[in-house]
Simulated scan of single mutants.
Amino acid sequence: MVRLISRRAAALAALLPLAAACAAPPEDEVWRPAPGTAWQWQLSGTPDLTVDVPVYDIDGFESGAADVAALHERDVRVICYVNAGAWEEFRPDAGDFPPELLGEGNGWEGERWLDIRALDVLRPLMAERFDMCRDKGFDAVEPDLLDGHLHDTGFPLTGADQLAYNRMIAELAHDRGLSVGLKNDLPHVPELVDDFDFAVNEECAEFGECAALTPFIEAGKAVFHVEYALRPEEFCPETTALGFSSMAKNLSLDAWRAPC
């Protein structure tokens, strides 16, 4: 009898790891900030790391791993800003972009729209940028200018081109364990809300477009929103009711902020 019990015990012990594996929850998904999460967005000047908010969005090239680590010490999540839709002559990888992919200027000095149809060429270039974000310890990426199809880029970009590119960007981020925000591109919110983990928007209140972002809120995902020309009292009642994370900022995106 003792031998039989021992055998049964051994068999049960052998099954325990398998049972535990089956019962264990899946690996943690990427971070998805909830609607209404406060944030700070600073892309110019020395980062002020003292703002008491749970989320920071800072420049991926200009910020170092030490900045990210300092914010993590305060349990702050950190978003890595990178330009995914335009070439920037002042970035260290500027020479890696083929000249034929550089289009019209986008209104910012030293920047030109990219031909996002060249997925095979841009994929490794953007992958390297996202590798940088991951290696510095960032939690997420904010890929800017994901709405080239709405602008005069110098290329005949279509909505289908933009969808393909934006989904590639989201895939690159998720492959590296990073969450990713949809920057503007309001016409494609319904198609892309499942591919992105939050949204970043500029000036939807000024142009009467904020309702287009509500699918993110309905999906339990934050909408990080700023206005430049409007005062908080002019947009906060609307965007707070929608569940947005809103604030007024200077166009230079320095440290100043006036949150709702």
Rank of each mutant, 00 (worst) to 15 (best):
Asp194Leu: 08
Phe196Gly: 03
Ile217Ala: 06
Glu209Ala: 15
Leu157His: 12
Asp147Pro: 08
Leu230Ser: 02
Met168Ile: 08
Ala222Gln: 01
Val180Asn: 04
Ala173Ile: 05
Met168Asn: 09
Leu182Pro: 01
Gly181Gln: 09
Asp194Cys: 05
Lys136Ala: 11
Leu163Thr: 15
Asp175Gly: 12
Val141Asp: 06
Phe207Met: 03
Leu163Gly: 04
Glu142Pro: 03
Asp185Ser: 11
His188Gly: 13
Phe216His: 02
Glu218His: 10
Asp144Thr: 04
Ala219Val: 12
Phe155Asp: 06
Leu192Thr: 10
Asp175Glu: 15
Asn201Trp: 02
Pro190Met: 14
His151Ile: 01
His174Asp: 05
Thr153His: 09
Ala164Pro: 02
Arg231Trp: 12
Ala229Asn: 07
Asn166Lys: 09
Gly148Arg: 01
His174Arg: 15
Glu227Arg: 05
Glu142Arg: 13
Phe224Asp: 03
Leu186Tyr: 11
Phe138Gln: 05
Gly159Arg: 15
Ala140Ile: 03
Ala160Val: 13
Val180Gln: 02
Gly177Ala: 14
Pro143Met: 07
Pro232Asn: 10
Asn184Lys: 08
Glu233Pro: 00
Arg231Met: 14
Leu182Met: 11
Leu192Val: 12
Asp147Glu: 14
Asn184Ser: 08
Leu192Ile: 13
Leu178Ala: 11
Phe196Arg: 01
Asp185His: 07
Glu227Thr: 01
Arg176Tyr: 14
Glu142Asp: 13
Lys221Ile: 12
Leu157Glu: 10
Ala173Gly: 06
Ser179Phe: 09
His174Tyr: 11
Ala212Pro: 01
Gly148Val: 09
Glu202Arg: 00
Arg231Lys: 14
Pro187Phe: 14
Asp197Thr: 03
Val226Trp: 03
Tyr228Ile: 11
Gln162Glu: 15
Leu192Trp: 11
Asp161Thr: 12
Thr153Gln: 06
Leu230Asn: 00
Glu233Thr: 03
Phe155Tyr: 12
Val193Asp: 08
Glu142Tyr: 12
Gly208Ile: 06
Ala199Arg: 09
Glu203Gly: 00
Asn184Gln: 04
Arg167Lys: 15
Glu171Arg: 15
Ala211Lys: 07
His151Leu: 14
Lys136Ser: 09
Leu192Cys: 12
